[in-house]
């Protein structure tokens, strides 16, 4: 339910904002056309993000983001994929041509063996990294375990998308933990340009979080500190963090940077947070949940967790 109301709420918000800033625009001497353009762009992006089912009046995006079709496709796949919205992350784009980047798919995790192309769109390899190029990761990992290393779809599918493909990958990275599929992958990656991160810090057999991060195919040699991270600090973390570091924290930081579209996150306010021993109870208000690529809203949420 709370997802069904989302389009209406967003519509109301957009209308309200545009209405109220008309005055500001006039004060600043900016023409109404610009205002209309702003509204148009905004709506377009929101619709493209597919966080809910909008009745689109806006024309299909296709420009900056990967064609919506991909999304649809993806959605069908039921990947936990986020909407194509990749807002932040200025990825330097386009790797469109170079499959390599895409190959990196952090997203591959999501791709449980699934459609190859799908993942790639989103996977903008955060790392500038050596081109993993295109080696298409040998076809989807069997069983879909995420060996992150195997990036799915080769570049070709990627090519289609205009660079923009989402940055979700960055967000994805932290989630990669899920399917660490660690060691298995080494084999695959080896073939492809992807460099399996099997050895090196991440790999250590420790349970330390790093392993999952293996998505790094980023060319990484384990010891090589990944050059910055284009957006993924998570990726970096793999390279530079010690095993003692909590990978989750890294993931958090990353997500904090604003991967709204990529990571499952809830923005809300709290009324009360209480704890008894290891049982936590919270009362949250006015929240916006972004999960599995969809948005949900709530006026009130009670949470019970065990730590």
């Amino acid at each position: 339910m709370s997802n069904k109301i989302v389009p209406a709420i967003y519509r109301a918000v957009i209308d309200d904002v545009i209405h109220n800033i008309k005055n500001e625009f006039e004060e600043f001497g900016v023409s109404e056309e610009v205002l209309a353009e702003l509204q148009h762009k905004w709506e377009k992006k929101v619709i493209e993000s597919h966080v809910a089912e909008f009745e689109t009046t806006a024309p299909p995006p296709a420009q900056q983001y990967a064609p919506a079709t991909h999304h649809v496709h993806m959605i069908q796949q039921a990947h936990p994929h986020y909407g194509a919205h990749n807002p932040y992350a200025p990825m330097p784009a386009p790797n469109g041509q170079a499959p390599q980047v895409k190959a990196e798919p952090v997203d591959s995790r999501y791709i449980l063996g699934g459609p190859q192309g799908v993942a790639s769109h989103y996977a903008l390899p955060p790392l500038p990294g050596p081109t993993l190029n295109g080696a298409r990761p040998a076809a989807v990992h069997p069983g879909g375990h995420q060996s992150v290393l195997s990036f799915p779809p080769g570049p070709p599918p990627v090519q289609q998308q205009p660079q923009a493909p989402a940055q979700p990958s960055t967000a994805a990275a932290p989630r990669a933990y899920n399917a660490p599929a660690p060691a298995a992958n080494p084999a695959q990656p080896a073939a492809a340009p992807r460099i399996p991160q099997t050895d090196g810090p991440s790999d250590s057999s420790d349970d330390s979080p790093s392993p999952p991060q293996s998505y790094a195919p980023r060319s990484s040699h384990p010891s090589l500190p990944q050059p910055s991270t284009s957006q993924n600090s998570v990726v970096d973390s793999e390279a530079i963090n010690s095993d003692l570091d909590d990978s989750d924290t890294e993931g958090e930081d990353d997500a904090d940077e604003g991967t709204a579209g990529d990571t499952d996150i809830v923005f809300c306010t709290y009324d009360k947070v209480a704890r008894v021993k290891n049982k936590w109870k919270c009362i949250l208000k006015d929240g916006m949940i972004h999960i599995n690529g969809k948005d949900y809203l709530f006026a009130r949420c009670t949470g019970e967790f065990e730590w």
Binding site: S2, F298, A299, R300
Partner: peptide, 13 residues
């Protein structure tokens, strides 16, 4: 808008 229009409740575990 959220305060005005959203009335849903959710629980989380």
């Amino acid at each position: 808008t959220m305060v005005k229009m959203v009335k849903t409740k959710t629980t989380l575990r």
